[in-house]
């Protein structure tokens, strides 16, 4: 085999492998984004289910407390903090905290509440909208995207 043959072979190989490598990178990125999307879905459902499970008045109070234009970092969610602070996690707390930090550091959420009356207080139902956002590229705030989920809370009282 001559040098020329080798070079030609390498060139062909490189041309063949480059798109494959690029495709692999893109797949990895997509998988990463999908993972984040799934995480955001989990955060949104967790938050929504938690609120929907509360008694009507309590749910409304909690929801309005979290509602507003100002986003809240997911890691500052008091329920998450309480969970991490649980005694059962004492031994592995540092690992959990570091994992959480790694996974959720750019995750934020905010809530909106719409009442059936259109006024400040609902009577029979209110709608909770959960926005969970995250950075697609960790270093770039402009790549922040969001997942939106909605649920309606009903008053058991007639």
């Amino acid at each position: 085999m001559t040098m020329l043959e080798l070079l030609v072979g390498l060139v062909i190989f490189s041309f063949a492998i480059l798109p494959i490598i690029s495709f692999g990178t893109s797949t990895t990125r997509t998988t990463y984004i999908t993972g984040k999307h799934l995480m955001a879905g989990q955060i949104a459902t967790g938050l929504l289910d938690r609120l929907l499970a509360l008694p009507f008045d309590e749910a409304f109070t909690e929801a309005t407390k979290l509602a507003g234009d100002q986003p809240h970092p997911v890691l500052e969610d008091p329920v998450l903090a309480e969970m991490v602070g649980h005694q059962a996690l004492a031994e592995g707390r540092q690992i959990v905290e570091s994992d959480l930090q790694k996974s959720f550091r750019f995750f934020e959420f905010r809530l909106a509440v719409d009442t059936d009356t259109g006024k400040a207080q609902p009577t029979r139902q209110f709608k909770i909208t959960v926005f969970v956002s995250w950075r697609v590229e960790e270093g770039n705030e402009e790549t922040r995207t969001a997942l939106i989920l909605q649920g309606v809370k009903f008053n058991d009282l007639l």
């Binding site: 997509t30 999908t34 879905g41 029979r124 139902q125 989920l149 649920g151 309606v152 009903f154």
Partner: peptide, 27 residues
């Protein structure tokens, strides 16, 4: 994966919609 995510999302939204609908019916 993409399909799964899309399916999961559809599932999620369908569930939340139907739970709201059911809640409304029962109320």
């Amino acid at each position: 994966h993409g399909h799964l995510v899309a399916f999961g999302d559809a599932h999620l939204y369908a569930r939340y919609f139907l739970e709201s609908h059911l809640g409304d019916v029962l109320q």
